[in-house]
Simulated scan of single mutants.
Amino acid sequence: MATIVPTLFSFFQDYKQRFVQSEFDKEVSRDFDTQDIAEHTTAFENEAKQMAKQPSEVRKLIGYIDLTTLAGDDTKDRVEALVDRAINPVPQEPNIHCAAVCVYPQRVADVKRHLSASGKKFNIASVAAGFPSGQYHLQSKILEVELTVADGATEIDIVISRAAALEDDWKTVYNEVLALKKACGSAHLKTILATGELKTLINVYKASWASILAGSDFIKTSTGKENVNATLEVAYVMCTAIKRWHQLTGKKVGFKPAGGIKTVEEGLSYVALIKNVLGQDWLTPSLFRIGASSLLDNCLKAL
């Protein structure tokens, strides 16, 4: 044992966030048993049904929500109302609040001004870098991220190039995320995989691994604009990558499902998944978020 422990410690210290094709190929050379995943996800859904009966779990669920509006007709007044609601969703319980608001880049300055006027601090998330398609020049993606951070965003949700992913060009996926992470500066980077367009579970794992290697603070399922958005199946695969990274490096990466999560039971299914796959330490807004627009309404109805 005395010779094994230093070797493992040395490995963890040397394992850097870099892309080496041979190392990448070795890591992602794995299969996923869909029947086994289905059994796990069914268990998470059943656990969520029991959790939904507990008001304390519903209150915690509110605290994971990135309250989101991503509509073409978003206005200053709409995002200001969103901020007020996110900060104080349950008027009789002022200690309850959402984790962040998420808006388009053009509305970030409105959110920032509104918060400044109110004297309150709150997480401002924004989608950027060619959201939702990702089909933009890298330089324009970088500029959009830089401008959005300058306007006051503390969290940036980018989307990977699905074209590169579907062409099995994971080095390009990695390089783009790496460049956008640098453009974020002190803001946190949440990298959207758009899992509904990646075709296979192994592609979901590869996208997760490339994004984590590039320094993503979170990996996120979907833009909410795809035909298929967050599912427990892809979430399980993504959390498998997060767990693997933590085992190798000791570093924790966050997880955010988004798109189509509306009911309390759906939201709590992801809570059950996180608890069982990653552990209780991940059940904090610093490591777990849910991107949603209507989930909050249903949480309030449940309470």
Rank of each mutant, 00 (worst) to 15 (best):
A153M: 00
A187N: 04
D110M: 05
I62A: 03
E57W: 09
M1Y: 07
P285Y: 00
D84W: 06
G196M: 05
I65E: 00
T34L: 11
I242Y: 04
F24H: 10
L198A: 02
K121I: 13
P55H: 01
N276A: 06
K121H: 11
L201K: 01
K301M: 06
G250T: 06
L138Y: 03
A38I: 01
T148Q: 10
V5R: 03
K171M: 10
Q54T: 10
G224S: 11
V127L: 05
G250K: 12
G134K: 01
I87Q: 06
H97F: 00
E45F: 04
H114S: 07
D74I: 08
W209F: 14
F12M: 15
Q139P: 03
S293W: 05
E80F: 08
K275P: 00
C102P: 11
G279Q: 07
S208L: 10
V237S: 01
V234A: 03
A165R: 01
H137L: 12
K171H: 13
N298F: 11
A165W: 04
Q21Y: 10
P6E: 07
T42H: 10
K243E: 12
Q21S: 14
E167R: 06
E47N: 07
T75H: 12
D74E: 14
Q50P: 02
N229S: 07
T240L: 03
K256A: 06
Q247R: 04
L147C: 06
A117R: 13
I261R: 02
L213E: 13
E144Q: 14
K190F: 05
G215L: 05
D151N: 15
I261P: 02
P89G: 07
E47K: 04
V108F: 08
T7W: 07
K60T: 05
P55N: 03
A71I: 06
V177H: 02
V159A: 05
N229R: 01
D25K: 09
A187H: 04
K190M: 04
A163N: 01
K120M: 13
V101Y: 04
E155G: 03
E226L: 08
G215A: 06
I96N: 03
L147I: 05
A129G: 08
F288D: 03
S22E: 15
A153Y: 01
I192W: 03
S161D: 11
A38R: 13
P105E: 14
S293R: 00
G185Q: 09
I219W: 03
V277W: 01
Y15F: 15
G254I: 05
L300H: 08
S56E: 14
I65T: 01
Y64I: 00
G291D: 08
C98N: 02
V111F: 08
L193W: 12
L198T: 00
L70H: 12
S186M: 01
D36K: 06
D157C: 09
F32H: 08
K206G: 02
T263N: 15
A43M: 15
T172V: 10
T154G: 11
D31C: 00
V159I: 15
L115C: 13
W209D: 12
V111K: 09
D297A: 14
I4S: 02
S56D: 13
L115M: 09
S208I: 07
P55M: 02
N298E: 13
K220E: 01
T200P: 04
A100K: 01
A164G: 02
S126E: 04
L143K: 10
V253H: 10
K181R: 15
E23Q: 14
I158V: 15
